[in-house]
Amino acid sequence: MEFNETEKKKIAHLRTRYPDSRSLTLPLMWMIQKRKGFVSDEAVALIATELELPKIWVEEVRSWYSMFSEKQTGKYVLEVCNNISCALMGSQEIIDHICSVLKIKVGETTADGMFTLKTAECLGSCGTAPMMQVGDRYYELLTEEKVDQILEDLKNNTQPEQKPQQWPEYK
């Protein structure tokens, strides 16, 4: 495993932005997770070599932060917020609905490798609860019907355009 040319250019630029190269640990891990979907042991070794750090320093970053995965996940990871505002607005029903539609439990991946279901802590979208995150997209004001449509769209590899925080139409 190696960094590609575009990544190498980006790394050279990043090195000018921090006085200490250890600061590049998170940015490089993001770089790899973006390309591969997860951060393998090999990737950890690559980052450690690139930044001349003990491997354990990189490893502990990977395991400590919740957004880095060590293993291959489904193509789309559905992270449904189950914190306070979302819970009050019915996130549990949304989670139950996804479980029954995809026939998986929280933490599992569908047999076709398409979807992984997870729950998440507050994602800063409490005013538009219940909500979930898929990749870098937020899906807000969820209902069971909306979820069905979203899953259908994802199967066809369509994600909507990113938009700022959405507000419900008030009556």
Binding site: R17, R22, S23, T25, L26, E60, Y65
Partner: peptide, 29 residues
């Protein structure tokens, strides 16, 4: 004046000021 945008990786405690500094330094937050 220079500004660099740094992306976090999911941890509430990093919102604490010193946790956040550790995180920018490339450590656990």
């Amino acid at each position: 004046c220079d500004i660099t945008v740094h992306k976090g990786a999911g941890a509430y405690v990093v919102g604490d000021e010193t946790g956040l500094m550790n995180s920018i330094e490339g450590k656990k937050g």
